[in-house]
Design a protein around this nucleic acid. Structure first.
Lengths: 244, 244
DNA sequence: CGGGCGTTTGAACACCCTCAAGATGGGTGG
DNA sequence: CCACCCATCTTGAGGGTGTTCAAACGCCCG
């Protein structure tokens, strides 16, 4: 059980409820099948029948949808403590693919196990549903960004959100965070071309706001970025001031 | 109980599981507070504390987010049988607003009632989670559309999705459907300007694909639209051929 | 040393936006 | 019954944000 108590998922769920020992034990029982996936090799392909989800422990993953013309849209980026495919366990086909951005460690969870755990511990169930609701709120915010924000604001908002999410699981601070994403990932996430991502990043750097380089994001003017992006972390439902 | 058996929600959930009499009874017990809301007057404002959801019975609603500069992004359009605010019952603040597009009839559901119903009837709980998963899959598809599809394809895809959703609750056919949305609604939904929506609709009309006029959508070449939009309704998880 | 991946920059173009003006139609009050 | 108003729809012209195409550069790795 010791392995679970300080896992990133536990840490995240603690932002919502303090889980009891019994609930942690149920969570632990979900952790049978720990697996490694290699960077760049999809874990799940869209169209495949779903019925299984994952909890990410180590590394980064992106979930995306591919279109017939070859363009792709990254829907969300997952960091340690996040669920993968929770949305589609109940749907007949997975509506998207998962690509590990680096080598990752994840735990496989079957739909049946999950529903069983729900029945046993309502409070844990509520906590997991909270996490799922939060994930959806992030997708919604992402939608708003792509629909109504210019490239620079969109980029600023995305980097700030990532920073806040990582801070919740102890992987980021106000100064910045490590980030294995390439500019192509950013492009497919933000609905831009890679070329324009590059120009946008240069502009933000020259304005003294943030640097994205060598796998590291550094906030030079955190407040300035927040002002530019009009970033309000309320939708992340992380009450306390996590990033100072 | 008779009122529930043929409600649009029941009809929708039946696409997933056949509910028993006992489960229908629990669903019925959720239906205490039936209320009317007037077109154009928001039911919920973003920032307001959530804790309550609605089931839509009659009429259309859109859920949207407003930005400081006045632009708005419609995240989703709800039609009869859809939930409103299910995502945010567990979050501390509602992350968006709801505007009835016409006068509507909806039932208020408290978070506590919902969780109680979940505990009583696991199958009903699963059905409701299925509906929530399906809603999120639609938001994801919406995100992909805004991020990676041109205006005409985006429009075609949206109209086809609406048609399929309405067909599931008996309000649409292959020829078309009634639709109270204005071109401004379409613009805020698709992340376009109202002017460009107008041009896009004209173009689709002149290509003989679809007409949007006088509150009515008419598909002139349904298959042609499907081909243009590369519309694959798998993400809606409506197994049967509903729109023929 | 060659090859692949990621980054960087330039030039021309396209999609979509903004601004502006007019048309249409339903509702209200004189 | 007409005049007016407002919301919605429609169309034109010009401009901007972001795209595509192209080429080069640095770097890691086999």
């Amino acid at each position: 059980m010791t392995s679970v108590e300080h896992s990133p998922l536990t840490r995240k769920l603690s932002a919502f409820v303090a889980l009891t020992k019994a609930e942690l034990a149920v969570l632990d029982r979900l952790h049978k099948r720990r697996r490694i996936f290699r960077a760049g090799h999809d874990m799940v392909h869209q169209g495949q029948s779903a019925q299984t989800a994952f909890i990410l422990y180590e590394g980064w993953v992106c979930s995306y949808k591919l279109q017939a013309d070859g363009t792709r849209q990254i829907v969300d980026v997952q960091v340690p403590g996040d669920f993968l495919g929770l949305r589609s366990v109940l749907l007949r086909t997975s509506d998207h693919s998962f690509e590990p951005i680096v080598d990752i460690e994840a735990v496989e969870v079957r739909a049946s196990d999950l529903l069983e755990a729900f029945a046993q511990t309502p409070r844990l169930a509520t906590a997991i549903l909270w996490a799922a609701s939060r994930d959806e709120a992030m997708v919604v915010e992402h939608l708003v960004g792509i629909g109504r924000r210019d490239a620079d604001v969109r980029m600023a908002h995305f980097l700030l959100e990532l920073g806040a999410r990582l801070a919740l699981v102890g992987m980021g601070r106000a100064e910045g965070f490590d980030c294995p994403l390439t500019q192509y990932h950013l492009a497919d996430t933000l609905g831009l071309s890679a070329v324009h991502v590059n120009r946008t990043l240069r502009q933000l750097r020259e304005r003294g706001l943030v640097t994205f380089r060598d796998g590291h994001v550094r906030f030079h003017d955190h407040q300035g970025l927040v002002d530019l992006a009009e970033f309000d972390p309320a939708y992340l439902d992380q009450t306390g001031p996590l990033l100072t």
